[in-house]
């Protein structure tokens, strides 16, 4: 009596694949009625699944969707007011404090060489630009995902 049987995975494979003549699996199946029965059960299930009735919507999907689709229209180039206003607000956000606190700032940096000040300014501006770019890219990606899903 054969005490070693095919694994569940091998049984499933045997049920899904064409028999390979001369393979160890086929040789085992030839001599083992228990595994042959298990393969037959899987084959029956897979066959039944394939011919099982498929679900269908009880409405005309194409008609439902096509009614909602916008008609293609020529692209209209609009003036980018939101971007301009945001830019203006950002400039004001820097300019106003600079005007108000200008004399305090000049006394604050009076002892520092011009070269050093320029270096600090360029570095700070670079970091700021980099952070702005990252924020915009993150925002765009999140909006894309929100619109998509």
């Amino acid at each position: 009596m054969n005490t070693h049987h095919l694994s569940e995975e091998a049984l499933q494979q045997a049920a899904m694949e064409q028999p390979e003549a001369g393979s160890v699996r086929e040789a085992h199946l030839e001599g083992c009625s228990s595994c042959r029965a298990a393969v037959a059960e899987y084959r029956a299930i897979f066959g039944a699944l394939k011919t099982m009735e498929k679900p269908v919507f009880d409405f005309d999907v194409a008609q439902l969707v096509l009614e909602q689709l916008p008609q293609p229209q020529p692209a209209v180039r609009r003036f980018p007011w939101p971007a301009v206003l945001t830019g203006a607000a950002a400039v004001m956000g820097f300019a106003v404090p600079l005007l108000v606190l200008g004399r305090f700032l000049s006394s604050l940096f009076s002892g520092i060489p011009a070269m050093m000040l320029a270096l600090i300014g360029v570095t700070a501006a670079g970091i700021l630009l980099f952070l702005c770019r990252e924020t915009v890219l993150n925002y765009r990606e999140k909006m894309r995902l929100l619109n998509f899903y």
């Binding site: 919507f57 999907v61 194409a62 969707v65 096509l66 689709l69 008609q71």
Partner: peptide, 18 residues
């Protein structure tokens, strides 16, 4: 903007979507 093509896309895929 070819509507029959859009309809064909829907019909070809609605089985999987269902």
């Amino acid at each position: 903007g070819h509507q029959p093509a859009a309809a064909q896309i829907v019909r070809q895929t609605e089985g999987l979507v269902a």
